[in-house]
């Protein structure tokens, strides 16, 4: 038998596109990944993320650094920013949001321009970390600053302490909270003499001569951590 209309019409005269993609991510569903033209990624951000991916044997390793880059660009990991990073990295936005939401320093909700993390963990708590946090929260009222209590920041030697825009300061007095916020608002150097960087090694300092102040006696309610500011 032979077909009636136009036997074996084929269309070979358009070029064949070939893509060889060694180094693939097995099976990722391309359908779920936004395409670059849909996300409007600023070129600097795109280049930066591509540079980050190039540092690792597997591009996925760049997801935390890429999210840092998004956060730097937009102030927090905005859904649009995550989509942009996902399009550049070729992962689903959900992949990246899942990562971002795991880590305390990556914010998936809006936060202020400045960020202050006040340690309220054991050593800082013993030395007034809670009061310090309260002082910061009070001083930061209305300012463009995101203030949170935080778990141990690895600086118990300067307890009670806080990390202000990713730099450590301590030991801090409650009164210094307001100073720090004023300095932040004014764009000035924050508490220069309380910066960790300026501190000598413990054993190189003379024994303390300070007086001993009696602690305030009270029973603070400590359920419900103070989070956000």
């Amino acid at each position: 038998m032979s077909p009636v209309d136009g036997a074996g019409i084929s269309n070979p005269n358009l070029p064949v596109d070939i893509a060889v993609t060694k180094g693939r991510v097995p099976g990722r569903s391309e359908e779920q990944i936004p395409e670059l033209h849909e996300v409007d990624c600023p070129p600097e951000l795109r280049e930066r993320i591509e540079g980050l991916m190039a540092r690792y044997p597997d591009r996925r390793s760049a997801s935390i650094p890429a999210l840092w880059a998004v956060q730097e660009r937009y102030g927090w990991c905005t859904p649009d920013g995550i989509r942009q990073a996902a399009a550049v990295m070729r992962f689903t936005p959900a992949d990246l949001e899942s990562v971002a939401s795991f880590y305390d320093l990556l914010h998936t909700d809006p936060v202020g321009t400045h960020r202050i993390e006040v340690c309220t963990n054991i050593s800082c708590w013993m030395r007034g970390g809670d009061e310090l946090l309260d002082a910061f929260v009070a001083a930061g009222e209305g300012a463009d600053v995101h203030i949170t209590g935080f778990e141990c920041l690895g600086a118990c030697d300067i307890a009670p302490m806080a990390s202000i825009d990713q730099r450590y300061y301590g030991p801090l007095e409650a009164a210094e909270a307001a100073t720090a916020i004023e300095q932040l608002n004014a764009g000035a150097d924050v508490l220069p003499d309380k910066a960790l960087a300026a501190r000598p090694l413990a054993g190189d300092t003379p024994p303390p001569t300070g007086r001993n102040r009696e602690p305030e006696s009270r029973n603070r309610p400590i359920d419900g951590e103070v989070r956000g500011g």
Binding site: V16, D17, I18, A19, V20, T21, K22, R24, V25, P26, G27, R28, S29, E30, I33, R90
Partner: peptide
């Protein structure tokens, strides 16, 4: 996404 070579 999972292919090592694709022809279109």
């Amino acid at each position: 996404g999972g292919a090592e070579a694709i022809a279109r």
